[in-house]
Amino acid sequence: MFASNLPTVTAADVPADAYLLDVREADEWAAGHAPDAHHLPMMEVPARLAEIPADADVVVVCRSGGRSGQVVGYLMNNGWDNVRNLDGGMRQWAAAGRPLASENGHPARVI
């Protein structure tokens, strides 16, 4: 795992204009996500690289930081130098009091 030397950002320090890339599965996304996030499941990233900005601040997030760390490493190995991992993932996002939205009609939560 290469998570230790990856660029990270804390939930409190995510810039308002960052492109928040949520790489969790569909059920996790539906239960609760950042309101302005973009959903792109981890396994679809290689086929959908063109959707990820190369010229904007990109913050990658999953539940706790493991999967998003792998995606950050993958993107960096493919030429992205504008990506950071959300330290602690959506768990820390919620703990920091950042907003959540759901897609399933239930109160937003991190699963």
Rank of each mutant, 00 (worst) to 15 (best):
F2N: 14
G73I: 04
F2W: 13
P46M: 00
S64L: 11
A16G: 15
N78R: 11
H33F: 01
P46D: 00
A54R: 15
T8R: 14
G69M: 08
S64T: 13
A54K: 15
V45Q: 02
A26T: 10
A11E: 13
N104D: 15
S64D: 11
W93I: 04
G88I: 07
W93N: 05
R109E: 12
W29K: 01
V9H: 12
A37G: 02
P107E: 03
V9Q: 11
L75N: 00
Q70L: 12
R91I: 13
V14I: 07
D57L: 05
L100Q: 05
M42I: 07
R63I: 07
R84C: 07
V60S: 03
V58D: 06
V110L: 08
A34T: 04
E25G: 09
V71Y: 01
F2M: 13
N104W: 08
N85W: 03
A16I: 11
G73A: 07
R109A: 13
F2E: 13
L100F: 06
R48C: 03
C62K: 07
G89L: 02
G66E: 12
A18D: 10
G66Q: 14
D17Y: 14
A18S: 12
D22C: 02
D13G: 13
D27G: 09
A96C: 11
E103M: 07
P41T: 04
A47M: 10
S68W: 00
E28W: 08
G88T: 07
D13F: 11
N78E: 03
M43N: 13
D17L: 11
V59N: 08
R91V: 14
D13S: 15
N82V: 06
A34I: 03
R109S: 14
P15M: 09
N82Y: 06
V9T: 10
T8F: 13
N78L: 07
S102M: 04
A31R: 10
N5W: 14
M76H: 04
N78H: 14
V72I: 02
A47E: 11
G65H: 09
A96L: 10
Q70E: 13
E51R: 01
G79F: 03
P35N: 06
A11I: 12
W29S: 00
A3G: 14
N104G: 10
V110F: 09
D27L: 12
R24Q: 05
A95S: 13
A26R: 10
P7E: 03
G89Q: 05
A12F: 12
H33S: 02
Y74R: 01
Y74P: 01
D57E: 11
V58R: 04
N77Y: 10
A96W: 10
A108S: 05
A31Q: 10
P35V: 06
V61D: 00
N5T: 11
D81E: 09
I111F: 12
W80Q: 02
V45K: 02
P7V: 04
P7H: 04
G105I: 04
A31P: 09
R84M: 06
G65T: 09
E28C: 08
R67S: 05
G66A: 15
H106A: 15
